[in-house]
Structure formats: C-alpha cells, structure tokens
C-alpha cells in the first residue's frame, strides 16, 4: 500500500522561483513611484506644477466667462513663519494676465530660507494654470524678523475645460532645508 512521493529535489527550483517572485514584487513596489509620477503627469491628476516659468502669450478673452481663483496658504507644524495670501480670491478672465502677492514674515531672530510648494485643485486644471512669475520658483531668503510680499503672476489658459469655474491654488511654505533636491 502507498506510493512514492514526488522527488523532493525539485523543491529547490520552486523555492528559487518563489523567492524570486517575492523579490520582484519588492522591486515592483518601488517601481510604483515613477509609474505613479508618469501616470499623474499624463492625466494631470496629481495637481503638481512645474517649477519653471511658463511662456505664454496674452490673448484676448474669447468669451465672457469668469473663473474664481482662490488662494490658500498653509504651514506644517513648527513652521517659523507667518504666511498668508494678500487677497483670498480674484475673478479672472481666461487669457488675461493677473498679479497678486503672498505675504510672509520670519518670526525668528535668525536668518532662514523658505521654499513654497504649490498645488492646485481640481488637479485636472494644472495644465491650464500658467505661472509666468512665482515666488515658488526659487527659495526665499528672510533676515531676522523680515517680512515681505512675494509676487505671483499668472494666466489661466482659455482652453480650461468649461465645467471648471473655480480653481484653488494652495501653497505650503517649508523651511528650505526640509526641501530635498526639488
């Protein structure tokens, strides 16, 4: 009664394959990072901006629609700044150029450097919101207790999908040493 088991030598092949699979999936986990960036880039859903000034030609508005652009300033915990937009929202016509400023003040007695990181909602609008000048393109140096208004100049592209009538532009102001190789 009873038969011989399958030859156990074949364990090694299968175990090697399975370990290979596990290691492969570990690498795949890291591959998700560039894949995610590419995916967000193509679909524009991440709401992330280029850090370069856009080159745009100012156009005459083709229709009379207006878009509300809202400005939000945020700080993470322990940030040594006061930081706020000088106006919280403006009505814009697509194609025209607008200027506004964000106010920041160093609350410490030493020199610090800040870096603003922008984000826009809804994320699909990122392609249509063009900044020709922005304090977020470079880091911002502040001497002790210094305060200043930092400029922002932008155009909303007339191709902005018609269902979007409100954009929220948000900046988070970080201490620059937190910002690694942006």
């Amino acid at each position: 009664m009873g038969q011989k088991f399958r030859q156990p030598q074949i364990h090694k092949t299968l175990v090697t394959k399975l370990i290979g699979m596990a290691l492969g999936m570990f690498v795949f986990g890291f591959l998700l990072v560039p894949l995610y960036d590419i995916f967000c880039d193509i679909t524009g859903i991440g709401g992330k901006f280029d850090t370069q000034a856009a080159v745009v030609t100012v156009q005459t508005p083709t229709d009379d629609r207006t878009i509300t652009v809202e400005f939000v300033a945020s700080l993470n915990e322990y940030a040594p700044w006061e930081f706020r937009p000088s106006t919280t929202s403006i009505q814009v016509r697509p194609g025209e150029m607008y200027d506004t400023t964000f106010y920041a003040r160093n609350l410490t007695d030493r020199e610090i450097t800040g870096q603003a990181v922008p984000s826009i909602a809804p994320g699909q609008a990122v392609k249509y919101f063009k900044k020709t000048e922005c304090f977020c393109f470079t880091s911002q140096q502040f001497t002790a207790r210094e305060s200043r208004d930092m400029p922002l100049q932008f155009v909303v592209d007339p191709d902005l999908p018609r269902h979007i009538d409100r954009l929220t532009l948000s900046y988070t102001f970080f201490v620059a040493k937190q910002v690694a190789n942006n």
């Binding site: 992330k48 870096q115 988070t172 970080f174 937190q178 690694a180 942006n182």
Partner: peptide, 20 residues
C-alpha cells in the same frame, strides 16, 4: 534618509503611499 517619496516639500506625494 531625507528622501521625499511622500513629502510634498521635496516633490513627493502622500497620496502615493495610499496607493502602495
């Protein structure tokens, strides 16, 4: 190690962690 996989300050995205 000062990477920015999920830190917005360094160009990362916390939502990526949710996907992973």
């Amino acid at each position: 190690f000062a990477t920015s996989f999920f830190q917005a300050a360094g160009g990362g995205d916390p939502v990526l962690f949710q996907h992973i």
